[in-house]
Design a protein around this nucleic acid. Sequence first.
DNA 1: CCCCAGGCACCTC
DNA 2: GAGGTGCATGGG
Length: 286
Amino acid sequence: MNEFKISAEDFDLELTMTCGQTFCWHRIEGELYGEGNSKFYTFRNGEPLIVEQQDDKLQVRTNLSEDEVLNALGLNEDLESVFSGFPEDERLEKAREELWGLRIVQDEFFPCLISYLCSPQMRIPRIKEMHNKMAREYGEIREVDGNELLRFPTQEELFEATEEELRELGVGYRAKYIVETLDILQEGFDHSELDSMNYEDAREHMKRLYGVGDKVADCVLLFSKNFHEAYPLDTWALQAVEKHYPEHHSEDYDEASRNLRDYFGENSGYAQEYIFHAARNDIIDV
DNA sequence: CCCCAGGCACCTC
DNA sequence: GAGGTGCATGGG
């Protein structure tokens, strides 16, 4: 594997990996949502990618290109200009101070989708457990530098899983979401078609997948398809909106989503991440 | 034992 | 299209 450094200003690797947006990255030595070192890995196109932060540089081991690494970590984005595009906003400003360096990753579509299919009525650490169990059972354990790295299964590999087997892994009623969605994917659902769509069409297209509603569609579009205007509205996010942005709140998902995208603009997904994480960490109250 | 968790599909009306 | 309901599993 190649080894190189890339500059990573305005970037907090630890925060980005552990804030709950991604289930596709893993901590080497330790649990992702627990204690451990500050070295993380994932796979892209079956290639391992290992990253460690050293101040404002990243130490990288991979055969992927530097561009692919930058893209995976959301580093090909100027964080300052993302924030300068937001309206003046007290809570966002506070979240910015506390969480500066948090970036939106770009995971691979398939593992991202399957993780979020598991997310309904589930706590974040347990979604991660499910992701890891599927990786162990249907993916690959690859040894790199004496570490056992988990590669999530490909679409074809996971297609072999039955609903019953998945239930035995503990994913509950979400097993049906996974097998039904895999059928639709195998029948020719091509996620690259999303790339040429506008956001609202893309969200509707995503909802053709079984188990994908507005919220899951938004997460997958935001964290794997570069739709930074997507503003995932889960129970936390919606509570925060109701309390702090009552003028944008609505019980209707589409309406609230439109209000928030109108208010925060083309990078409203970044606003969501900062506000969501701040709310969950008592930086701003809900 | 009860409650709820980063919702969703499906059924009424 | 709006509103109600069942859903697997584990932890508080």
